[in-house]
Nucleic acid binder design. Structure first.
Lengths: 153, 153
DNA sequence: CTTGACTCTGTAGTCGAGTATAGAGTTTAT
DNA sequence: ATAAACTCTATACTCGACTACAGAGTCAAG
């Protein structure tokens, strides 16, 4: 096996094999998540197959809740020779706390919603009001507060 | 009490009394959530105090998880004379389902994260890897899937 | 040799719910 | 009379992770 055994891939093939869109790959490069690959004479990107592992890394980190910014920081640290373990741990701990808070809020919110719904089921809809569900709620003020309840997605 | 008893409010006062920013009020108007108020000769908005109730309605609906788009639909329906009850119920039912799914995914995700963290605690950090936490995870593939795990916010 | 598939760069748009700014005019207080 | 505080419109920016497009160049097959 020669050392130069690796097949070079054009961006479309990387996209197909990784499931990441072409535009996203170029975007990752711009964001510092992928280093810039070699080019053909005509300027086409030529990737080593190793890039696929890097992409898996990115996907995994993403699945663990890291933002692209954080991932790119991890990669920078790695390049600087530091093992970014403590950082990873910190991020994950923070992530866990946020998660707990968010879950708690959602559960509370859920129970409020169902309460509203079933209360409304009993009462039936009276006059021209918006179902009492909103206009004359039996829930006091505030609900679960901060109306940051609904993650945008 | 005369019929024209209502005090007219300028936007700053509405903002102060409702806790909604001036820019947001104008934005709500553009979005059809608030009807356009009267104006002074010089063009300043003059609101009836009734606008405060409308804002409370909006805030409550928002707290219940309605998007501004949905809220504006509810208001349109109300203006058309229809009671949008069935719609409200539908939206809430959908919201509940989404919520359940999201909570479930988050809980699963949470347990995966803690598993990662504690596994890593035992192993300690070996070679130059990114803590094994990401690069050589003991969790198989996919984690909680779809990496739509992290609500952006 | 031409058609179609691929790739390049650079810019702009998406979603949601606003916030920020510029530049101009108005009202209120001193 | 003048300064401070308020309001107006219109436009652009924010965050995150992309996606879409225009317009041009390149490569492989028939």
């Amino acid at each position: 096996m020669a050392l130069t055994d690796e097949k070079q891939l054009k961006i479309g093939e990387v996209s197909r094999r990784s499931g990441v869109g072409i535009e996203a790959l170029r975007f990752y490069e711009k964001s510092g998540l992928l280093e810039r690959p070699g080019r053909t004479y005509s300027g086409y990107r030529l990737y080593d197959e190793a890039v696929l592992e890097r992409i898996v890394f990115i996907k995994r980190a993403q699945a663990l809740g890291f933002t692209l910014d954080e991932i790119s920081q991890l990669i920078q640290h790695k390049h600087a020779g530091e093992s970014p373990c403590e950082e990873v741990r910190e991020i994950i701990r923070t992530r866990l706390q946020e998660l707990d808070e968010r879950i708690e809020r959602m559960v509370k919110y859920r129970s409020e919603l169902t309460a509203e719904l079933s209360a409304w089921d009993k009462i039936g809809h009276a006059d021209g009001h918006v179902c009492g569900l909103i206009e004359k709620s039996h829930i006091e003020n505030g609900l679960s507060g901060e109306n940051q309840l609904r993650p945008r997605s």
